[in-house]
Nucleic acid binder design. Structure first.
Lengths: 337, 337
DNA sequence: CTGTTAGCGCGTTCAC
DNA sequence: GTGAACGCGCTAACAG
């Protein structure tokens, strides 16, 4: 029952272990005859090379680590699915490190990026600090960021300025002039890259391009959840001169807006247009107009990028920019009455 | 830059590698003094043991494999989250093998259960054949099934007979006598354990207990998706004497029923009661009455069970039976008019 | 208590 | 082309 090793195969085939190793690794310098012998010995013994031993000898772990927050949320699942689709075709295993608390993030940022543990690291939506990246560099583990950015790290990001612009512009083209925006909190960030800032920027740009004056009463920030968005939407809709359209930072928040409108008896899309962002599953279900991010694609591209960089001895930080797409459904319409 | 090894630490601390190994592995037989020395050497050198080398030496891989279909679906995510919560506390890594096709399942069933690869295996919702289990046994990799069963394997299963019973009985207690059931296809299975059969059984039992005659016109099977369920629901609702309540095999299918009712102008719950199964996220959102499975719990229990069996030299197949819970929301009501 | 040594299973020189 | 020997980093068994 003791698992069969390369040595057993060698003995059975009447060759040296080196030769067996060569045929396994497709080395060209093996005569056809011996190759055959070895192959049949392998088959008879049902031999499978030990990945562990292989890794130790190779000095590579053949596994990729993925650090992701809330891997249970649909947006992360989508990205992970993209990652899985490419990694499962490669010979790399991948293991998910799920972070739900700051402590966990810190722990993982400290412990995971080690050559002894993984060959490559992917981090989703968790912008590293300068100090973090410094440590990553020191560990020499190729790293790529997905949905986060840092100048010294490879990354695949969504063009959120453009996405925010598209959302606002859709509303504008419909004829709206009074456009609210309910956003996630805009935290201060050392890098001017966060989606929050970018979408806001896109929103502002669109208004500017259309010659619409920005009205700060229409702009609200709050926690990224439905309840909070609902509360904020009510505030905005209670204004003496309420907006005729609202752009929500995320689909989840858009649902909050929808609920607020419903409670206040404001018809959508007749009296109020609502557009979200992300295009999560529920969005289609509820026929929400939204901006689609290619979440799946970002996972795919991230994994591909990482795989590439694994081979390069000294990978240059590279940026892949993904674009968004407007998906018109039934929560937006021209302002009426 | 070459990573620091146990030998470096030993040299720096002026001790043998064995001693270093001992302090790392918390062996009690090390004097406090030397332990201190070693510890500080480790700290200075920023030494981290190589998991790979450790595994090779130990003869254990310290990783658990989880084979799951469609890990992207909310029900699997829930289970995986449970698994993750216990495994991340252990020293085991875990890697997910996602199967979306039969080929992949076969491939994984063949390649993954190997001592050289993993120490323990968890399989979700994929009932193995006798031949499979035979191979699993041969590989000597402790295996536990979650949401699937085989007499020779440890497993955590949901009491689906009871769940189906609860669903139907809820409808009955509300006063319904004409109760439809839209099910997944009932494939033939060598084991009489599948959820499909069990829920159906529960449904039948409830009818029998209430003295209601079974009407085969009310029973439909189809693909497990919304569209198909919608189609089936329309058929049933078009009957000359349509049911006043429908039990759907899954929440997803229940949504199809809801949609069918909506299209046909049948009000829910006034004219038609609908109950689903699973209690996925969307269910709460849409206020669907349903049967809650403790998906998360089943992941937790499965992982715990596996961890236990890892230590036992010759683990007995064990079964953990989880119960369901009726969650009443607003799609069920007494039959009216 | 602690240093030394022999593997764990494989990839890889090096001579043959 | 091919076999033998060494090393990857660590644990465990054995002396001392």
């Amino acid at each position: 029952m003791a698992s069969v090793t390369i040595r057993d195969v060698a003995k059975k085939a009447g060759v040296g272990v080196g030769t067996v190793s060569r045929v396994i690794n497709q080395s060209p310098s093996v005569s056809l005859a011996t190759r055959e012998k070895v192959l049949s010995a392998i088959a008879e013994l049902k031999y499978t090379p030990s990945p562990i031993a292989r890794r130790l000898s190779l000095g590579k772990t053949m596994t990729i680590g993925v650090i992701t927050p809330f891997f249970t949320r649909s947006s992360y699942i989508e990205r992970l699915r993209g990652v899985e689709s490419v990694l499962s075709q490669s010979e790399y295993d991948f293991i998910i490190y799920n972070v739900e608390t700051v402590e966990r993030r810190d722990k993982y940022f400290r412990e995971i990026p080690r050559r002894e543990r993984i060959d490559g690291l992917m981090i989703m939506s968790l912008p590293p600090t300068d100090e973090d990246t410094w440590r990553f560099a020191e560990s020499e583990v190729p790293t790529v960021l997905v949905d986060a950015a840092h100048p010294s790290l490879s990354r695949v990001v969504i063009d959120d300025v453009d996405g925010g612009y598209k959302a606002a512009m859709h509303l504008i083209e419909l004829g709206h002039r009074k456009i609210g925006y309910i956003s996630d909190y805009m935290k201060d960030s050392p890098f001017h890259f966060t989606p929050v800032q970018e979408r806001y920027q896109g929103y502002r740009n669109a208004l500017a391009d259309a010659g619409i004056e920005y009205n700060s009463d229409y702009y609200k920030q709050g926690e990224l959840n439905e309840q909070e968005a609902q509360r904020l939407a009510k505030e905005v809709l209670s204004l003496p001169d309420p907006p005729t359209a609202i752009f929500a930072y995320s689909d989840t928040q858009a649902f909050g807006v929808l609920r607020a409108a419903q409670e206040m008896g404001v018809e959508v899309p007749e009296k109020l247009s609502v557009i979200g962002y992300d295009d999560i599953e529920l969005a289609e279900y509820l026929q929400l107009t939204t901006i689609r991010q290619s979440l799946y694609q970002s996972g795919v591209r991230g994994a591909q990028l990482l795989l590439e960089q694994l081979d390069e001895p000294f990978p240059e930080p590279k940026e892949i920019l993904l674009t968004t797409k407007l998906v018109v459904r039934s929560t937006t319409a021209p302002p009426c009455c």
